[in-house]
């Protein structure tokens, strides 16, 4: 069964159509990279998966549960879908440790001790256990994003969404974040990743989605995407030549 299933998803902001009949499937363990020009609807698309962006038409299912259906427990669904944002969005008034335990305690009802243990283990995993008592503002961008990944993992998600996780980082910090993501992918995490890091896509992606003007223009296996560029749409070729140029 597909972990994420989208069928004919359309969304309008007023008259402007941000998503135009988007259909795709992400199987369990798949890593799907979403790319495309700025403003093409990538962020909006992945935010429909955890209900952060409501949509007017179509259907999105996560592990069989419809996101938009009335009876759906969105809180439960969201706690099973981890999300990592471009600008980290750590809670600046809380310590790194509290950032990782807040939702464990309030949403999953874990005890403080259980939540702390989980948090420290995950911080260890992203190499930041010694930063647990600091506030996010005291960390570098790369460190903050690794904390944000650990925070998302603390909820034991079955799916992870990434929205340009490295594009706000200084170049020298990109790889420390990508390394964590590659590790996750290799362990079999189901991931949808909006990124222009084509190196990451080549390394771990199962499929690549290319979006343009709210539409999914390409949705193909990685090897087809990179291996046979002449078969791609003109827009995708144009885009690829630009991002691969540097």
């Amino acid at each position: 069964m597909a972990m994420i299933e989208m069928r004919g998803v359309s969304k309008w902001f007023g008259d402007f159509r941000v998503l135009d009949g988007c259909t795709t499937r992400v199987e369990k363990g798949d890593v799907v990279v979403v790319c495309g020009p700025s403003g093409s609807g990538k962020s909006t698309l992945i935010k429909t998966v955890n209900g952060l962006e409501p949509f007017q038409e179509g259907e999105v299912r996560v592990d069989g549960v419809s996101v938009a259906a009335r009876g759906t427990d969105l809180t439960r669904l969201r706690s099973r879908v981890g999300m990592v944002f471009q600008h980290f969005e750590l809670f600046p008034h809380l310590t790194v440790l509290r950032n990782l335990t807040l939702a464990q305690e309030r949403v999953l009802r874990r005890s403080r001790a259980e939540a702390d243990a989980k948090a420290l283990a995950l911080l260890e995993r992203v190499g930041l256990r010694d930063q647990a008592a600091k506030h996010p503002g005291q960390l570098s961008g790369g460190q903050q994003q690794r904390v944000a990944i650990a925070r998302a993992l603390s909820m034991d998600p079955v799916v992870m969404l990434f929205d340009e996780p490295t594009s706000a980082l200084d170049p020298e910090m990109v790889s420390e974040v990508l390394d964590v993501m590659v590790g996750l992918a290799r362990e079999g995490m189901t991931m949808m990743v909006v990124t222009h890091e084509m190196g990451f896509a080549r390394q771990v992606a199962s499929r690549v989605i290319f979006m343009d003007q709210g539409r999914i223009v390409e949705d193909v296996a990685k090897d087809a995407f990179f291996g046979a560029p002449q078969e791609r749409s003109p827009r995708a070729q144009q885009f690829l030549s630009k991002v691969l140029a540097h």
Binding site: L52, T75, R78, S79, H93, R106, R151
Partner: peptide
């Protein structure tokens, strides 16, 4: 807004998001 999105993405509800994330800041 991103703070609210992050809180919601973790499963925190409206009241929890306000009380624990937005109002303290």
């Amino acid at each position: 807004r991103g703070q609210v999105h992050a809180a919601h993405a973790l499963g925190l509800g409206y009241a929890q998001t306000m009380r624990l994330v937005v109002l303290p800041q």
